[in-house]
Amino acid sequence: MVSEQTTQKPPIQQRSKPNWVFGLVGVVFGIVFVKAEIISWFRIQEMFRLDAFHMYGVIGSAVLIGLLSVQLIRRFNIRTLQGDPISIAPKQFTQGQIWGGLLFGFGWAITGACPGPLFAQIGAGYTAVGITLLSALAGTWVYGAIRKHLPH
């Protein structure tokens, strides 16, 4: 049993742009979420019923562009805007990826949302989803409270 997962350790603080810049990135991201209808419960249902390609196209092309970007950063040793080297912490395997992954998958199909779209749905005016967010916080908290007893 691994007592502390490296994937769950918050990374060491480094020089970075001020917080509001990340807020702006979030705004753009939220607009994309709504306009590509990724926050729609119907789009997630279509995905899990194999009735539409849309979500597969979104996630597939996002991974492709992310992959190309990370490879370019590695290849050319690109640094942050502050001049620091870019390092990405590796993900360490635990059983959590299986059991937690399945549980999240259940929740994804019920709510039609991963954590990001939850915030966008609330902003978009679906205020009842605020209860979903509170419950997601409760789920995270309960995980934190009982994680020592879970298989990892």
Binding site: Q5, T7, Q8, K91, T94, G96, Q97, W99, G100, G101, L102, L103, F104, G105, F106, G107, W108, I110, T111, A113, C114, P115, L118, I131, T132, L133, L134, S135, A136, L137, A138, G139, T140, W141, V142, Y143, G144, R147, L150
Partner: peptide
């Protein structure tokens, strides 16, 4: 649904 999203994502890291 919300509980499963919050618990599952954290368990999965």
């Amino acid at each position: 649904g919300g509980f499963l999203v919050g618990f599952g994502t954290r368990y999965a890291g």
